[in-house]
């Protein structure tokens, strides 16, 4: 099982997601409305040796994937960690088309499964699994011909399934990602301790899990101590996000603290300026060794 890179580049900043300010979020949405602006930042990160882009399956990411594919000489080591699905795409579709309508909206219209859904009758378990696999494939389409060694379920979706107790879905995802894509299945969650128990019950061991991990316990649901226990137990390969807790922790202190935690294999961070990218990179090198 290959180790993930120490430092992964995230995409929140590109899609107007800012946990502190809607104004900043909008300024970012304006700046990054064209793929050119996103590529400029990705190029800086890539040239700094940060070669993994962990990103949602947002439409604009398809354009980024096109550019990576088009220039193999420039982006030979570039890899994506797709995170699916882009939740708002589904949420808005559910409001617009209803639950079944939304599912059909995202499935090939000529497929047998779409027809089965339209029929409105009870679906066999096999068919439900089939629908899940088709939806995964639709999300993966944009990455065809690029490297996607790790594939995540986005946190709203992970946590919805986790809360409902529909943990079998994790197993379907797990098996399909391994079998069809030869990739490592992974999960983003805001509830790491609870998720870990749930996936283990599905027979999934030492999963890659991305969660908020930061010195002040910001959005670490289930409790700070439970997170530290999980990390120390060796049961999880963690990707730490929100390590700066939206700017509440000074960068040096934040990375130093993370570097001493067992179980954290990678850090994912978002930045829009070369200065911030280099800053985080040099801190990770200082405390954790090489970034790739």
């Amino acid at each position: 099982m290959p180790r993930m890179d120490r430092l992964l580049f995230g995409d929140n900043q590109f899609f107007g997601i800012n946990h502190m300010s809607e104004e900043k979020a909008r300024a970012q949405a304006m700046r990054f409305q064209h793929a050119d602006a996103i590529m400029d930042v990705l190029d800086v990160a890539y040239d700094e040796g940060i070669r993994t882009f962990m990103c949602t399956t947002h439409d604009r990411i398809a354009e980024v994937a096109d550019r990576i594919r088009a220039n193999p000489a420039r982006y030979g080591d570039f890899q994506f960690y797709p995170c699916m699905p882009y939740a708002h795409k589904y949420a808005n579709a559910v409001t617009e088309h209803g639950m079944v309508g939304a599912l059909r909206h995202f499935m090939p219209s000529d497929g047998l499964l779409s027809t089965a859904l339209a029929g409105g009758k009870a679906l066999a378990t096999k068919e439900v699994d089939g629908i899940a696999r088709v939806l995964i494939d639709m999300e993966m389409k944009m990455f065809q011909g690029t490297k996607t060694p790790v594939v995540f379920v986005q946190n709203v979706f992970t946590d919805l399934l986790l809360g409902m107790g529909f943990t079998r879905a994790f197993r379907i995802f797990h098996d399909h990602i391994i079998e069809k894509y030869g990739a490592e299945p992974a999960y983003i969650t805001m509830n790491l301790p609870m998720l870990l128990d749930a996936v283990e019950k599905e027979g999934i061991e030492r999963p890659i899990v991305c969660a908020n991990i930061n010195k002040i316990g910001f959005r670490m649901s289930g409790g700070f101590d439970a997170y530290l226990d999980a990390l120390k137990s060796g049961r999880v390969r963690a990707v730490a996000m929100s390590v700066y807790a939206s700017g509440a922790i000074p960068a040096d202190e934040a990375i130093h603290w993370i570097s001493e935690l067992p179980g954290v294999e990678s850090i994912v961070f978002g930045a829009s300026s070369a200065g911030n990218i280099r800053g985080t990179k040099s801190l990770v090198e200082k405390y954790m060794g090489a970034t790739a």
């Binding site: 809360g163 509830n191 316990g217 959005r219 670490m220 649901s221 289930g222 807790a245």
Partner: peptide, 20 residues
């Protein structure tokens, strides 16, 4: 003041602390 500093972590987070 930011919501992040005005909010405590819930037992379970799905889509915003307020829902929990």
């Amino acid at each position: 003041k930011y919501t992040t500093e005005l909010t405590e972590d819930p037992w379970f987070y799905l889509r915003g602390e307020e829902y929990s």
